[in-house]
Design a protein around this nucleic acid. Sequence first.
DNA 1: GCGCTTTGCTAAATCCATTTAGCACATGCT
DNA 2: AGCATGTGCTAAATGGATTTAGCAAAGCGC
Lengths: 341, 341
Amino acid sequence: MAKKRVTLADVARLAGLSTTAASMILTGRPDTRLSPEAHKRVHDAAASLGYRPNVAARALRTDKSRSIAFISDYVATTRFASGLIRGALSAAEEAKHVMLVLETGGEPAREIQAVETALDRQVDGLIFAAMRAREVFVPDLVINVPVVMLNGTSARFPISVLPAEYEGGRRAVELLVGSGIKEDIVLLGHNAKQEEGLFRSETISRRFMGIRDAMADAGLTFAAELSCWNWEPNFGYDLTRKLLKTQRPRALLCLNDRLAFGAYQALGEAGLRTPEDVALVSFDNDELASYLRPGLTTIGLPHEKMGSRAVELLLAPSRLPQADLIDMPVMMRGSLPRNRS
Amino acid sequence: MAKKRVTLADVARLAGLSTTAASMILTGRPDTRLSPEAHKRVHDAAASLGYRPNVAARALRTDKSRSIAFISDYVATTRFASGLIRGALSAAEEAKHVMLVLETGGEPAREIQAVETALDRQVDGLIFAAMRAREVFVPDLVINVPVVMLNGTSARFPISVLPAEYEGGRRAVELLVGSGIKEDIVLLGHNAKQEEGLFRSETISRRFMGIRDAMADAGLTFAAELSCWNWEPNFGYDLTRKLLKTQRPRALLCLNDRLAFGAYQALGEAGLRTPEDVALVSFDNDELASYLRPGLTTIGLPHEKMGSRAVELLLAPSRLPQADLIDMPVMMRGSLPRNRS
DNA sequence: GCGCTTTGCTAAATCCATTTAGCACATGCT
DNA sequence: AGCATGTGCTAAATGGATTTAGCAAAGCGC
């Protein structure tokens, strides 16, 4: 229990050299003039003693701790969050960094706490991740380490990682058009405030722009646009039921998978078949999408890639101030008719 | 940018005292004989300078870092994982600790890496969390900090936090019985290996034991037991469809919500209504459960509570070597007929 | 053989907080 | 007055690595 850890001094002693030499050799300094012989002795000594550097000591001296902080508003709420974390985690591991995870609930007081706690620990960078908000509140503290915004933006910190929503929006429409559907397309989840970027920020509104542009390019218009303020299954269900009383859509373009889920339920009750009677496309690639019958074709949110990209940007030597847009992949499943091109 | 951080020496200087005094006052040492006057001066100085202790320096000296490591096999796979993390995170925050999250994919090499990385950082404790396995592989390294197993067990580390599966199993049956259902109950997801504890360990088998005992107590037997090796929706769907060809169950006891999800789909296709024709109870309280129509009544896995309990045990001064069983709450929704007691 | 460079290595300072050992002065007691 | 005790505080060591400044010996040119 009380066996002391092996220190650099122990290694140096065993190698018959100074700690200076041992340090330089183990950290792989380039311009050192130490003999190959010395290199070997130190490496052997370190290996045989099982030497591991004390990160606290190193951090104290160098102000680098090989760790980063992932500060997010919500961690557990959505699968989205854990995708981001997982991606970030794997990139951090790759770069031999560890990741502190901090949750703030979006509360300014906890935000401040989180940043201070992280800085106290000499983290090498901060990631501010947002699950809900887009324009993120970042406490007005002196932050002297790199910052990357993940799934959000901030005026103070211009480097951000976001999904390529515009392209994603286009793709959803193109998928519909490509499968031969040319009319009676209904948009499910229209939201004027989000579309105008008033509510959250431009991000989701770009999705709308992509959808609008692609529709226009294909010379189409929506047969209806169903609005709701929350993208949960029961809204999808209610809106779709209401819709079916008066119209018979050929396709539903749903703004996320949970809405689509509700739509499936309403379609099922009405005895309509997917994709023969009504086709669906949606966004997110939620766990749900693969559970549905038939599987839901959806434009995926690239959680993991976003997470890993954020860490890569954070640790990259040259970081240009800009938004990095991550491609939203098409997840082909069975909710569209076979492509007849 | 380059403004140096405020150190304890700065505080001491401003207060006109030694760093010794400042340190003792700020860390709140009890038996100090420093004057109230001195206390005030130091606190004022610290506040006016915005002093924050350097955690690395403190860790170097005291071997405590106010941080813990959460080492888990999978982070993103299930919502379960993020519930555990969130719970752990909030308990850690409460105790003014930060949490390093590390993912191992269940690979021994990464496990070792993770433990070493954590120990290099002087963590005050390790949590080994399991999403999939129950008996967890813990690398055979010298670990001189407390360890708590979360949702898993290990012979080396006897402190663990697990769901109270036996009670949970009983409850599911009691719910059925309590709502007046006395026959034609079908068990969905039977798995001989798991039931015997051969596959994972005793944990899930306790769920089975609870179910069996409660059935026996109520004088009931299952009308059928449908087996599968994986608890995913398509298995629930296939098994239920097959079942409906030959039998007409009154209730389905599903071993998790994803199976129940598949069952809903098959029941819907067959034109059977829930709960009038077929009632359901299940386990987990997945996000799914609330999305279904009617909502799925399920015995919840207490993710967050498990996570927070693990941290509490880890940091508690007196930790008794034992398994801490966390209650599995009944999530009442609409998949059972109204209780007619 | 002298001065200059190169080679190979090290002593000591440094990062910042904690902690041990102990100093100087005041007070109380006899 | 002399001694013990208590009060209020500090100097210096410590933890483990990195880094600066520089030493001693060998090699080289002339």
